[in-house]
Amino acid sequence: MNTIDLNLNPELATKVLAGFIRKELGRADFSKAVLGLSGGIDSALSCFLAAEALGPENVLAVRMPYKSSSQGSLDHAQLVIEQLGVQSLTVEITEMVEPLFEKMPDMDNMRKGNVMARQRMIILYDQSEAFNGLVVGTGNKTEILLGYSTLYGDAACAINPIGDLYKTQVRQLSHALGVPDEIVNKAPSADLWAGQTDEDELGYTYEEADNLLYLIVDQRYTPQECVEAGFGEDFVQGVVRRMMRNHFKRVMPPIAKVSNRTIGYDFLYPRDWGT
């Protein structure tokens, strides 16, 4: 069995990822970035990388609390803003989403969470125009593979510097870059209600998920080989099902082909076309 080693070299990772932000924004004629800062580790890391790439004055970090968001989240986001000296803005979303919640009294927490994520996307894309910066994504490889995000909500962005880093790698790089310990060490949470954590909802820890995903995705193990490597069969099947069921979030919507040349199938250009 391959040794599972998700350690990465922080200097090299920072060089590649900050370079990616700087160059890809530059190709689109932008030099500024906008991102939502939740107080969690993923957006903190994206913010650190964007500040490194563009200079803190060219980064706008937006805090977008809902009334039930914890004060801790807001405080942790503020720590990042103050430590980096990035520009910041706080836009409370409560008064924007409440009218919809009131119209839909049977709305459950999942629906409410999606509405909040999409409301935050609306604010970020509006600030993108106002600040003349592109929205930098904050989704990591683990959550993208598990589909643990809201389509057109927190998953929406112009570029994503951390989408090929597993959660445990996000933690390692964040620690190396000086993201405050209280952010690195706290339990990851969507912060929709008090005490909610990702790992409770998923039913396994990120470390467990990362090790398994690394074998499946990076090392091309079959599910059966993962079981033979020591992972529980139910766990393996559950993760594989989750990856497949949520694949739609990772691709563009299919277009029904009727013409001789169709976007996505035989009209193929890179994003960086002509730049």
């Binding site: 080693d5 350690n7 990465l8 070299n9 200097e11 090299l12 590649v16």
Partner: peptide
């Protein structure tokens, strides 16, 4: 294309 970022100093 650069790939294989791990604990080494180079890709």
């Amino acid at each position: 294309p650069g790939r294989g970022l791990n604990s080494h100093e180079e890709l």
